[in-house]
Design a protein around this nucleic acid. Structure first.
Lengths: 358, 358
DNA sequence: TTGAAAGCGCTAACAT
DNA sequence: ATGTTAGCGCTTTCAA
């Protein structure tokens, strides 16, 4: 195995360049206030010695780390199976990189990991945290809150004001789940469908709950009352979508449209519909949510869905966090129209993308 | 946004408990050599103040971080699309967690990121690095080497002894790619097939090159000479597998077996074979590599493949790294039969799993 | 513009 | 068994 080598210190560079440590430090940190011939000597010494600042020492005095943790409270398998996270991470990664911050990905699966993550955050390894995929009863937000690290959540946090983690200052980025769901259902109604079913996501996540609310809004509005058997709970996965669709076909064989809580769910539903001999969209129209292009364009038929810009959500989360951080070298400009203050919520719009399935 | 709070220091805990800093430090780090009544007082003070050690300060003196970086030199999209990484990470994660080390995932896509990652490693954030998915001309190993961080590679590194990164001390974990490939091809021969094609992975990765070598070993051995048109280069993806299979069908319509470099490739090949009206395995037998269960069991027909224990590889990588680290509190016991010295290579066996496709 | 010196919060000798 | 003290490598006043 490659062995650890002992790295040169500021002191060594100073000695080599024949200057004081302070001068080297100045040059390394941008070089303001050091005259040229000297600065150049220092740069050469840095180069020759292969000097890299020791971050522990630096952080100890600056209290900055130029690193941000992304905490995902899902098992690896799920994280890696769902393109949603990939897109969000890509957005986050781009924004952080642009401001010279390192992304540190913290995966947690189960309670034991929670404590470890909390310790990591409280231990001062990072300047802030971006937190995802919280469920209603999740203890993680409480722990993170206690860790005292600036945090932005991905998706509206689900806890009420009476929980230990309640904090009027939570910042989060989300899309207009309820509005998007309304648009989807309205579209199905416009198509003349009346027996419109909804396959939900896990209802302990606000995104799923909000989409269900949107569905109900429109159904109640237009049809007065909605048949509760048309709603089946599921879990945002293709397998879950299959199960739900079977269940649905069993209890309401007359269903003529399905609004699936996300594209992966729609994928499963589509499979079962085909299996059962239903034509899409002739017999049953299907609408998804997310618009994960690799999924939606390869379904048979191509999926009509509610588009949200997932990568942009990631980018905004990162930007919101960086903005709120105490002065560092690398703060992005304030978001226009978005106060950088605590408690900010950014809700991105959704748009219906019409393809062939509805 | 949740604001940063200023955390209590050792000093504060000491004052509250009415003891010296050293005593608090001892208690916090295991409590050896502190008598009970005192220790308890300290623990209470820690609790009341919500004290968490500052890692920067601690690392500065101990030179330990209890954190390990996993560096993946692929774009996020690919990392998250390929279950391979998920499995490997799970193995790594389990082993690290068991020894109280934090996993820090560093994704790099492109040269710019390389420099950043190198700085991160050299900056002393982690005790070691686990590095994946290197291509032959990759500058990353050189940079990582210069960073002077103990490293274990996933897969045999591809660079020769003449490159800047050459180091007789590289440690890596791999599976028996060549042997596995031989077994696959031999199996196809035993089935009576003679026009056996191979769809390769990206040949700048040793795993792909080794599998190709295994294929050639057996073909040359048994058939004397092999038709070069039976080998098509691809890239380990389903889409690549489709392209390659089409190409293959075009130039050798008489092909009666395909050894695909991995399961994802086989998946694509299977699709094209079905499309072209070939029956599997009657007309064309197909063997994959990896045995990613979620893939292999859902193909039509179920895929015969060469199994490697990916999660175990991850676990071993982590263990190898931890073992080689200078004394810390959390070193795993030495691997039986595996010298913990630099330059260790662990090669895991592969086994042919017979399903319906060959 | 440059250098000297203090100190970030912690651990580990060394004293007691 | 407990306390005292000297740094770890860096940034940042403050003086020169």
């Amino acid at each position: 195995m490659t062995e650890a080598v002992s790295r040169p210190t500021l002191e060594a560079v100073a000695a080599r360049a024949g200057v004081s440590r302070a001068t080297v430090s100045r040059v390394v940190n941008g070089g303001d206030g050091v005259r040229e011939p000297l600065a150049e000597r220092v740069r050469r010494a840095v180069e020759e010695l292969g000097y890299v600042p020791n971050q522990a020492a630096r952080s100890l005095v600056t209290r900055r780390h130029d690193a941000v943790a992304v905490v995902i409270a899902e098992p690896e398998t799920k994280v890696f199976a769902d393109p949603f996270f990939a897109l969000q991470l890509r957005g986050i990664s781009k924004e952080l990189t642009a401001h010279d911050n390192q992304l540190v990905l913290l995966l947690t699966e189960g309670r034991a990991d929670h404590a470890r993550v909390a310790r990591y955050l409280a231990g001062g390894h990072v300047d802030g945290a971006l937190v995802f995929s919280l469920h209603l009863d999740d203890p993680l937000p409480g722990l993170i809150h206690d860790a005292g690290v600036p945090t932005v959540f991905g998706g509206r946090p689900g806890w009420g004001e009476d929980t230990p983690a309640a904090d009027p200052g939570v910042a989060y980025v989300d899309c207009d789940n309820r509005g998007g769901a309304r648009a989807a259902v309205r579209h199905l109604l416009d198509l003349g469908r009346r027996r419109i079913a909804h396959i939900t996501g896990p209802l302990d996540q606000t995104s799923a709950a909000d989409r269900l609310d949107g569905y109900r809004d429109v159904m109640a509005d237009v049809l007065g009352e909605s048949d509760p058997r048309l709603v089946v709970q599921s879990d945002f996965t293709p397998a879950g979508g299959e199960r739900a669709m079977r269940e649905l076909l069993g209890r309401c064989p007359d269903v003529d449209a399905v609004f699936a809580a996300n594209d992966l769910t729609a994928l499963g539903a589509l499979r079962v519909l085909r299996e059962s001999g239903r034509r899409v969209p002739e017999d049953v129209a299907v609408v998804g949510f997310d618009d994960m292009v690799p999924v939606t364009e390869q379904t048979e038929p191509p999926l009509t869905t509610v588009r949200q810009d997932i990568e942009e959500m990631g980018r905004l989360m990162a930007r919101l966090l960086l903005q709120g951080l105490p002065d560092g070298r690398h703060r992005p400009p304030a978001l226009p129209g978005v106060p950088g203050s605590p408690g900010t919520a950014v809700i991105l719009p959704t748009t219906l993308i019409r393809r062939a399935s509805a």
